[in-house]
């Protein structure tokens, strides 16, 4: 009884179970959930010890996730850099399998994500379910790209000489991702999956107002054979975390999907110093993430390696 009720009421079950409704119907005291950061495969609190309040679309309290600091960003980059060798060196097939396994795990946590998306974005349960299903489908779709992107983005080049000339796409390295601010799960998957599927590692800053699906996603990632450090999740302010990440000399690229126009401009300037690859946000407002993504979000985080080899005779 109480279980169906919490699901109906919008389901961030843990964090809300202590509410008056639960207390009225059962004697059990709910277990509140402490959301944590996800860095290097572990779940630390913020180095700063700070948290902030996250509310649903109507202003009701949902949870106190950590408010990450620039030192957390620094630690996350170290963890992400450490993971680059193993993740980019894994076979494309293996990466695809791991991403597919993540999709399996997402499916198992469907109810939780529907609850978090519905509460955070103020959607009806049916609409939220549609978003979550689309996100899982998108994850599977990207998983399939792991061993196919090289055929699309690379290839044999005709050259005027006795050489084989082959181009192959290689991951660029550590990518900082500012996730979309409004679409907290489908949008998140749409920016995260294309970064890691090609062998990059990510430092992800989820939506400041709606970080809960991202923090729950990190629990899925931790249990899906994804090596620690491949994805690092830092809840907090994009303006506070974006600056050190954009200026960081050991970050290779930054996706500004979740930055407003002014912040995006500042971060682009900061990113120029070490020639980071920058993906700009959509010019006026956040795009509708439900459309066909194509390869547009995978290609910016690839470097083309070209090999010349003499033709044997």
């Amino acid at each position: 009884m109480s279980e169906s009720k919490s699901a109906k009421s919008g389901g961030t079950a843990g964090s809300r179970a202590g509410g008056t409704e639960g207390a009225a119907t059962s004697a059990r005291i709910g277990v509140l959930k402490t959301y944590k950061l996800f860095v290097g495969g572990k779940f630390p609190r913020s180095e700063s010890g700070r948290v902030y309040e996250v509310t649903d679309s109507k202003g009701n309290w949902l949870a106190n996730p950590p408010l990450a600091s620039r030192k957390d960003a620094r630690d996350a980059v170290v963890a992400a850099r450490k993971a680059v060798g193993g993740w980019s060196g894994a076979t494309a097939y293996n990466r695809g399998q791991i991403l597919y396994r993540i999709a399996e795990m997402l499916e198992g946590r469907r109810e939780q994500f529907i609850g978090e998306v519905a509460a955070g974005e103020g959607l009806s349960r049916a609409k939220a379910a549609g978003r979550v299903d689309a996100a899982v489908d998108r994850w599977v779709w990207y998983a399939g790209w792991a061993d196919k992107i090289a055929q699309v983005a690379g290839g044999a080049n005709p050259v005027a000489g006795p050489f084989f000339n082959l181009s192959s796409p290689e991951p660029t390295g550590v990518v900082a991702v500012l996730a979309p601010r409004r679409c907290s799960f489908l949008g998140l998957v749409s920016v995260l999956a294309p970064v890691i599927v090609t062998g990059n590692t990510a430092v992800l800053v989820p939506s400041e107002e709606r970080p809960l699906p991202a923090l729950s996603l990190s629990e899925v990632l931790a249990t899906s054979d994804l090596p620690g450090g491949v994805v690092n999740v830092l809840s907090g302010r994009a303006s506070e975390l974006g600056t050190p990440l954009a200026a960081h000399q050991d970050v290779n690229a930054i996706d500004l999907a979740g930055a407003g126009p002014e912040l995006a401009r500042d971060l682009e300037i900061a990113a120029a110093d070490n020639l980071k690859r920058v993906v700009r946000p959509a010019p006026d407002r956040e795009p509708d993430w439900r459309g066909d993504p194509g390869t547009a979000r995978m290609l910016p985080f690839l470097e083309t390696k070209t090999v010349w080899h003499p033709v044997g005779s």
Binding site: R74, A247, Q249, D250, V251
Partner: peptide, 13 residues
């Protein structure tokens, strides 16, 4: 480097 430039440095440098 970090103290002199304000940017986190990396092992590439």
């Amino acid at each position: 480097h970090k103290l002199s430039t304000g940017r986190y440095s990396g092992p590439d440098y």
